[in-house]
């Protein structure tokens, strides 16, 4: 295991080391002090443990890597990530997993507003609650919420799935509750199994997705927007 200490190294030094490391390396980052853009642009299967909280865009645009944050994360956690995993033990701020194309994010605490905005294939699991406008314009992938969801959940959603165990304050435009089919229950179990989450009752989850009524412009729908 390689220890990278922010008290001794710059952000550039640390990111350069991570980006240039060899496959299957293991790093522990100490004293992150809420730094922005930490562990971004990694293109290899490496493991990074960050001891402490991070700022904006932690693990942004990563592929293959496993990132664990022992603390909380600022806005844009794992934005546009392509594959790999992120595990945050605490809470995450706005836009977690924004436009993520693949991989998974597991949030131990709560996620703020717009969690999974514009998601394009990523799986996001939030053990707590999510804020308003989560899964806004979500195109593909799965957002699993153990707690409650804020207002306008799934507004203008495309083909992503939302699973919620708690209460939903309100649904956004064109987002409806859908039947939890066997296929979707299996999908939910797979997502959680892949993230090593086992402490749940699948029967408590409801599924939400697109009514697909806004896919092509119809003047009669103008008041919905």
């Amino acid at each position: 295991m390689h220890i990278l200490d922010f008290n001794k190294l710059s952000l550039r030094d640390i990111n350069k080391t991570l980006q240039g490391s060899i496959k299957n390396s293991f790093f522990s980052i100490r004293n992150p002090k809420g730094s922005h853009a930490l562990a971004v642009g990694i293109n290899k299967k490496i493991t990074v443990k960050i001891v402490g909280s991070v700022g904006y865009y932690c693990a942004g645009m990563n592929k293959f890597s496993d990132i664990k944050v022992e603390g909380s994360a600022g806005p844009g956690l794992g934005e546009n990530m392509m594959s790999g995993n992120i595990n945050v033990t605490g809470d995450v701020s706005q836009y977690a997993g924004a436009s993520g194309h693949g991989g998974s994010i597991l949030v131990g605490g709560n996620a703020s507003s717009r969690c999974g905005i514009s998601m394009k294939g990523i799986d996001i699991i939030v053990k707590g609650n999510v804020g308003h406008m989560s899964a806004f314009m979500a195109q593909k992938g799965n957002l699993v919420i153990f707690g409650d969801a804020g207002h306008a959940l799934g507004d203008s959603i495309y083909e992503a799935n939302i699973y919620v165990a708690g209460e939903v304050a309100s649904l956004g435009a064109d987002c409806i509750e859908k039947k939890m089919t066997r296929k979707h229950l299996s999908n939910l179990k797979n997502i959680l199994s892949n993230a090593n989450v086992s402490d749940y009752n699948p029967d408590t989850f409801r599924r939400f997705g697109s009514a697909r009524s806004l896919y092509n412009f119809n003047v009669d729908n103008a008041k919905i927007y």
């Binding site: 853009a37 971004v40 642009g41 904006y56 865009y57 645009m61 844009g76 934005e79 806004f136 314009m137």
Partner: peptide, 27 residues
């Protein structure tokens, strides 16, 4: 397409976004 970026608003956020892009592409 949306009119706002999904993960930032305002100049202070944009400064951090630029930092992220520079870190990804090695400046």
């Amino acid at each position: 397409s949306p009119c706002r970026h999904p993960d930032w608003t305002g100049p202070d956020d944009m400064e951090i976004k630029i930092l992220e892009l520079r870190e990804i592409t090695g400046w």
